[in-house]
Simulated scan of single mutants.
Amino acid sequence: MPTGPRPLRRLERHPDATVDPAAWPDRVPAVAQLLTEGLDLPAGVTFLVGANGTGKSTVVEAVAELLGVHPEGGSAAHRAGADRGRGSDRSGLAARLRAVRSPGRRAAAFLLRAETAHRFYTYLEDTTGTGDGPPRPHPLHHLSHGEGFAEVLLRSRWVCEAAVLLLDEPESALSFDNQLLLGASLAAAAAEGRQVLCATHSPLLTAVPGANVLQLDERGITAVEWEELDLVREWRFFLDAPERYWRRVL
């Protein structure tokens, strides 16, 4: 992966921000570490992995907001969900952080979240009408969830133009083959000097050659080699003997 200048260099707590270790999301170890120690973001592709509730989506959403993107998805120019206001599930983390950017580097960002993708499609539908009648259904709505997701991730101009690409669990909508294509696309983006931050549960995506992998768990945020990831070990054990797992849970 590239090691040169990158649009976004570091996340750190704003000097005026307070920290409450007893409140959410500050009590999440990864968020606590981010607020106390900051987080350097390397060039190329960075994956955030960990169990549910470890702060992956919270961090990605905060970065999106810092770069002017609504946390439901889109870009600064296409703010899907902006008219909905801030939901009660938003962490407020972005307001307490600041982004350290590379001088002279544009940082146009695009966020796509699996759970809000269809809202983004509806936003596009609502903003691309002709003015001669009701908005026409956006073509993405005529595709399956996975097909629409792949169309945006692999072929859309929003992704191609983003200096910082933010993804939240994209594998949830993608087949094995499309996950491979996405991984290749992310590697190509890194080779072009763009930056990727992706929250994922996918052992396939995290195996992208040269990617940086950060594991979020009770210890906080730790750089981990792919072979040592908890999710890789768990999938290997399961695929090797799935009956052992089913006996335990059924």
Rank of each mutant, 00 (worst) to 15 (best):
A184W: 07
S91G: 04
A22P: 00
D20N: 11
G74T: 05
H14T: 06
R79Y: 02
D240W: 06
E161Q: 11
S202R: 15
L39F: 11
A114D: 04
A184D: 10
A99L: 08
L197Q: 06
V59F: 11
S57R: 15
H78M: 14
S91I: 07
E192F: 06
E234M: 11
V31A: 03
H141T: 08
G133I: 07
A108H: 14
N212F: 09
L124P: 07
V45Y: 03
L174N: 06
T54N: 01
D126W: 07
A187K: 14
P170L: 10
F47G: 00
T46C: 10
A82K: 12
G44R: 07
T3I: 04
A62W: 12
T54C: 08
G104K: 15
L35Q: 07
A95R: 14
A107W: 09
S172E: 09
R194C: 00
D177A: 14
V60T: 13
W24L: 06
P134D: 01
W235Q: 12
L93Q: 07
E147M: 13
G85H: 06
L182D: 01
E227P: 01
E227S: 12
T54F: 01
R27I: 02
V208G: 00
D20T: 07
E125C: 06
W158L: 07
D83R: 15
H118S: 12
Q179G: 02
V31Y: 01
N52Q: 14
Q33Y: 10
A17K: 13
T46Q: 09
E161C: 02
D89Q: 05
W24Q: 01
W246D: 00
E125F: 04
S202Q: 14
A77Y: 09
G73K: 08
E12N: 05
V31G: 00
S102W: 10
L48E: 01
A109K: 13
D132K: 14
R113Q: 10
R248H: 09
T58C: 14
P7C: 10
V69A: 03
N52M: 11
D83T: 13
S144I: 09
S75T: 14
R10D: 01
G220F: 12
F47K: 07
E115A: 15
A108Y: 11
T46G: 05
P15R: 12
D89I: 02
T3L: 05
D40Y: 08
A64V: 14
L197K: 11
A80M: 13
H142W: 09
Q179C: 10
R96L: 06
A184Y: 06
R119L: 15
P170Q: 08
V59E: 05
V69P: 03
A211D: 03
R119Y: 07
P71R: 06
V196A: 00
R106Q: 13
R13D: 04
L67V: 11
F110N: 00
H145F: 09
R86L: 06
G55T: 05
Y245K: 10
F120W: 10
H118E: 13
A184E: 13
V249C: 12
N212D: 10
C160I: 04
A22V: 08
E234V: 11
N178R: 14
E147Y: 07
V60P: 08
A76W: 12
G131N: 05
L239C: 07
E192Y: 05
L250E: 14
V59R: 12
T222R: 15
A43S: 08
A77G: 12
V208E: 02
S144A: 11
L66Y: 03
V249R: 15
A22T: 11
W246A: 01
E37W: 03
L143A: 13
G44N: 03
R136L: 14
V28H: 01
